[in-house]
C-alpha cells in the first residue's frame, strides 16, 4: 500500500468531520463558501445534460448557490455558453447520452435548519451571566439573548446571580416577567461602572461553587 493510500482514511474522516461541522452551522457554511474560490464553486455545479440548454442550467446553478449562500457576494453567473467553464463529465460524454453527474457539495442541512437551535455556545458554559452580557452587548444585546432563553434558564439566571433576593418572583412566573427582572437587575450601577473601570475583564458578580476535588 502506498503512503497516499494509508493517508486516505484519516483524510476522509477529517473531511467528513469538517462537512458535519459545516452542515450544522449555516453561518460557518456561508463563511467557508464565501472564502472559497468562485471558479472552484462553479466546477462543483451539476453537469450539462443533453435535454436542457446550458444557459438554463447555469441559471439553475445560480439559484442553487444563492439559496445555499444567503448573503453571499458571489457575482451572478452570465448565461453565456461560450463563457461558461467546462463542466465535469462534458469531456467524455458522447452526444445524446446523459453525462456522469457530479455530486453536489453539501452546503447545510438538506432538511432545513434545526427545529430547536438551542442557545449559543458564545453564552459560555452553564448559566449565562447577565452582567457580563450587558457589559459586552449592552441592553439591547442582553434583551435579544434573553428572548432566546427558556423558562428554566431564566429562572437559573435569577437564582444563580441572586437577582430576586427577597423571593418575590413566584415559582410559576411567566417568562416575560423573568426577562424584565433580569434586565432591570443587570443594569449597571455607578458602583459597577467604577468597579468595571478598575477590573475591566470581570463581568460576573457571583460565582457558583462546586464540590472540591478529593
Amino acid at each position: 500500500m502506498s503512503d497516499d493510500e494509508c493517508a486516505t482514511p484519516p483524510l476522509a474522516r477529517l473531511l467528513r468531520a469538517l462537512a458535519d461541522e459545516v452542515a450544522r452551522d449555516p453561518d460557518l457554511a456561508a463563511r467557508v463558501m464565501r472564502a472559497a474560490d468562485p471558479e472552484a464553486l462553479r466546477l462543483l455545479a451539476p453537469p450539462a445534460t443533453a435535454s436542457v440548454p446550458l444557459s438554463k442550467q447555469m441559471a439553475n446553478t445560480d439559484t442553487l448557490l444563492a439559496t445555499a449562500l444567503p448573503g453571499s457576494d458571489l457575482s451572478p453567473l452570465v448565461p453565456d455558453e461560450a463563457a461558461a467553464p467546462a463542466l465535469p463529465g462534458d469531456d467524455h460524454a458522447p452526444s445524446g447520452t446523459t453525462p456522469r453527474r457530479t455530486r453536489l457539495p453539501r452546503t447545510g442541512s438538506r432538511f432545513g435548519t434545526p427545529t430547536i437551535p438551542g442557545r449559543g455556545t458564545e453564552l459560555g458554559q452553564g448559566v449565562p451571566d447577565p452582567f457580563a452580557l450587558w457589559a459586552e452587548r449592552g441592553e439591547d444585546g442582553l434583551r435579544v439573548v434573553l428572548d432566546g432563553l427558556r423558562a428554566g434558564t431564566l429562572r437559573a439566571i435569577i437564582r444563580a446571580h441572586q437577582l430576586d433576593p427577597q423571593g418575590k418572583m413566584p415559582a410559576n412566573a411567566p417568562e416575560q416577567r423573568m426577562r424584565a427582572l433580569i434586565l432591570s437587575a443587570s443594569r449597571p450601577t455607578r458602583d459597577d461602572a467604577r468597579s468595571a473601570a478598575d477590573h475591566p475583564t470581570s463581568g460576573t458578580r457571583r460565582n457558583h461553587t462546586r464540590p472540591k476535588e478529593g
Partner: peptide, 11 residues
Amino acid sequence: TYALTGSVHPT
C-alpha cells in the same frame, strides 16, 4: 444537556 442547559451543541 438540552434539558439542563438549553444548549444543543456545547463544547
